[in-house]
Amino acid sequence: MNLHTLTQHAANSEIRELELLSLEGGVYLARIRLDHGQFTLLDEAAQPMHLRSIPHLRQVLHTVPAFPCVLVQHCVHDEMCGRDTGPVGELRIPFSLSTPL
């Protein structure tokens, strides 16, 4: 999904959530959830848009109507140290496009 399409969906209140996925190397990817699926935010070359931070995402989306957002980070300490039982959960922190964390 490109920025133009994201803006259209936001204007129609169709975006259920944007997940800002924290990856190794300080790179973030945005995944947009609609009722009919999930889509990665793409750049002008139709490649996944690499974001640097929440402020960078806010800068990119400054003209887009607001919608729910969440920062998603996997708990690497549990993966490195091991867990006795159960799956390793992810950390989900809600944030706003209009206000700082």
Results as ranks from 00 to 15, higher is better:
residue 1 M to Q: 03
residue 2 N to L: 03
residue 3 L to R: 11
residue 4 H to R: 13
residue 4 H to K: 14
residue 5 T to F: 02
residue 5 T to P: 00
residue 5 T to W: 00
residue 7 T to L: 00
residue 7 T to A: 06
residue 7 T to N: 04
residue 8 Q to F: 00
residue 10 A to M: 01
residue 10 A to E: 04
residue 11 A to V: 00
residue 13 S to R: 04
residue 13 S to T: 08
residue 13 S to C: 03
residue 14 E to W: 00
residue 14 E to P: 00
residue 15 I to Q: 02
residue 16 R to S: 04
residue 17 E to R: 12
residue 17 E to M: 15
residue 18 L to N: 05
residue 19 E to V: 03
residue 20 L to K: 08
residue 20 L to F: 10
residue 20 L to E: 04
residue 21 L to S: 03
residue 22 S to F: 07
residue 23 L to C: 14
residue 24 E to S: 11
residue 24 E to A: 15
residue 24 E to N: 09
residue 25 G to C: 05
residue 25 G to M: 07
residue 26 G to L: 01
residue 26 G to F: 02
residue 27 V to Q: 10
residue 27 V to R: 14
residue 27 V to M: 06
residue 28 Y to C: 06
residue 31 R to E: 06
residue 32 I to Q: 01
residue 33 R to K: 12
residue 36 H to Y: 03
residue 37 G to C: 07
residue 38 Q to I: 08
residue 38 Q to G: 09
residue 38 Q to F: 04
residue 38 Q to E: 12
residue 39 F to W: 05
residue 39 F to C: 00
residue 42 L to I: 04
residue 42 L to G: 03
residue 43 D to I: 03
residue 44 E to T: 11
residue 45 A to C: 09
residue 46 A to L: 12
residue 46 A to P: 01
residue 47 Q to C: 07
residue 47 Q to R: 15
residue 48 P to R: 06
residue 49 M to Q: 15
residue 50 H to D: 10
residue 50 H to A: 14
residue 50 H to I: 10
residue 50 H to Y: 10
residue 51 L to D: 09
residue 52 R to D: 13
residue 55 P to G: 07
residue 56 H to A: 07
residue 56 H to F: 09
residue 57 L to R: 05
residue 59 Q to R: 13
residue 60 V to P: 04
residue 60 V to T: 13
residue 60 V to R: 15
residue 61 L to G: 13
residue 63 T to G: 04
residue 64 V to C: 14
residue 64 V to F: 01
residue 65 P to L: 05
residue 65 P to E: 04
residue 66 A to S: 15
residue 66 A to T: 15
residue 66 A to F: 06
residue 67 F to E: 02
residue 68 P to H: 01
residue 70 V to M: 03
residue 71 L to D: 03
residue 71 L to V: 03
residue 71 L to C: 05
residue 71 L to A: 07
residue 71 L to I: 07
residue 71 L to F: 09
residue 73 Q to T: 10
residue 73 Q to A: 15
residue 74 H to F: 11
residue 75 C to A: 08
residue 76 V to T: 10
residue 76 V to Q: 13
residue 78 D to G: 05
residue 79 E to I: 14
residue 79 E to A: 14
residue 81 C to N: 11
residue 81 C to E: 11
residue 82 G to A: 09
residue 83 R to H: 04
residue 84 D to T: 13
residue 86 G to I: 09
residue 87 P to R: 14
residue 87 P to V: 12
residue 87 P to I: 08
residue 87 P to L: 15
residue 89 G to K: 12
residue 89 G to W: 05
residue 89 G to I: 12
residue 89 G to D: 10
residue 91 L to S: 08
residue 91 L to D: 11
residue 92 R to H: 12
residue 92 R to C: 13
residue 92 R to F: 09
residue 93 I to R: 10
residue 95 F to Y: 06
residue 96 S to A: 15
residue 98 S to Q: 15
residue 98 S to D: 14
residue 98 S to N: 11
residue 99 T to H: 13
residue 99 T to F: 10
residue 99 T to D: 12
residue 99 T to W: 07
residue 101 L to H: 14
residue 101 L to D: 06
